[in-house]
Nucleic acid binder design. Sequence first.
DNA 1: TGGCCAATACTG
DNA 2: CAGTAT
DNA 3: GCCA
Length: 315
Amino acid sequence: TNDKGRSIAYQKAIEALKRCTHPIRSYEEIKALPYVKQSLADKIWEIIRTNGLVKLSAFQSRDDVSTLALFAGVWGAGTETTKQWFAQGFRTLEDLRTRARLTRTQQIGLKYYQDFNTRIPRDEVTRIETIVKQTADEVAPGLMIETCGSYRRLKPSCGDIDMLMTFKDGKRHIHESILAPLIEKLRDIGFLIHDLINHSETSSTSHVSEQLTYFGVCRLSEPGSLHRRIDLIFVPANEWACSLLYFTGSDMFNRSMRRLARRLNMSLSQHGLYHGVVRKGVEKINTGQALNTPTEESVFLYLNLSYRPPEDRDH
DNA sequence: TGGCCAATACTG
DNA sequence: CAGTAT
DNA sequence: GCCA
């Protein structure tokens, strides 16, 4: 419930299982998998034998666990908030609506609870993408726009919509005035329904970033359309490739790529790839120098990896 | 036994 | 600052 | 919970 390390370990084991192509017949075969040892092998074997896991069903049916899982579906509420709500005696979404103290974003998260927790079919993402691109062409021509996340990994459905943009020519500077008119226009045409977060990431530490980020709620005009979570992100041209990599994911893929970078005394983030990084434990002594990363391919190359297209980046 | 990706901005 | 999000 |  509150064990980050353990949940990562389970994730790794799950990925290892997915990667395993040959059928599993014996307990020994399970234990031979990476990231699977005694404890997890026992659990997996029990699932295979009995088609279930006694401990898991007992766990899931616990009042607190199921309630926390329900509350976790509210955008803007994390582990601490959901625990507090449970402690205050709330058990249903109706309890939250009528009695809980909610932040503005949590109110939106609750209002659209069902919608936000419904997967978005690919073709709907495509239609949403078209609207944003058309509108961008009107108010800020010359933008390159790429829809990332699971959409770019060619998944049949997506949890939300992540759109990354930069200037095609790569020369013009990203400026606050680019984001605002686009948002405004999208709001005018009835596409954007709510704003969740509107932030401008400016140079505060080592790297000079001019990333602009908007999180909001959109909806297609067709009757019956659900409200969808959409993120619009402007990045400076020199950060395009690393941002694209980051926002395309998957999460697990990003992690393993960053682990590799670290082993090579480099550091990878959405802003760039740095080499000559000096670390003392987790702490960075020297941030190193930024490498020129014009394309995703270039990042793979620096890390001595062969290129993997988005659809092969599930882990 | 410590780390498990990284870096940063918003809200209250 | 703690919490949440990307 | 697994790994270095």
